[in-house]
């Protein structure tokens, strides 16, 4: 299984590390030279310097035979375009985009991204569950003390 990752920030770094250790074939695309150089020291040929929304770079990175493209940059517009190019130009079966602004989750899905992930939304949901659990515990305690 061949996975292309766009964006070598923290998420991209740990994702590459994890996927490589699980035996996946991975190409990580990073735009910033200084970040790229650090990643290159560890991942060698699994990292490419360049713009993950550049058609030639995607082509040279083997987007045509990729099973999955995951775009995790800090810019929703770049994640959208990387996924759209992967899907419609290179026929990649599945695309995943990180969504920085939770409001864009629905929009990116409507514009053709298969899966969207919003860390804000995920953490918010966890907090909400935690708050509900806390409230539940307090109510139980209050009910017990009345008995």
């Amino acid at each position: 299984m061949y996975v292309i990752l766009v964006g070598g920030g923290k998420v991209g770094y740990y994702l590459t590390k994890t996927l490589l250790s699980e035996g996946f074939e991975v190409t990580l695309i990073e735009k910033e030279r200084t970040i790229f150089e650090k990643l290159f020291q560890e991942f060698k040929d699994s990292v490419v310097l360049g713009d993950g929304t550049d058609i030639r770079l995607l082509h040279n990175s083997g987007a045509g035979r990729a099973d999955l493209l995951v775009s995790i940059t800090g810019h929703d517009q770049d994640n959208l375009v990387a996924c759209q190019l992967a899907k419609r130009k290179f026929g990649v079966a599945h695309t995943i985009a990180r969504v920085n602004n939770p409001k864009n989750e629905d929009i990116l899905r409507r514009l053709g991204v298969d899966t969207t992930l919003s860390s804000t939304r995920i953490i918010f949901n966890l907090i909400e569950q935690e708050v509900a659990a806390q409230v539940g515990r307090l109510q139980e305690a209050a009910a017990r003390s009345r008995e």
Binding site: D76, Q77, D78, L80, V81, Q84, R110, L111
Partner: peptide, 16 residues
């Protein structure tokens, strides 16, 4: 000046 910003904004205008 950013292509991807233009591409996304245009699609939001059109589709949404």
């Amino acid at each position: 000046r950013d292509d991807n910003t233009n591409i996304m904004a245009a699609q939001v205008a059109k589709e949404i």
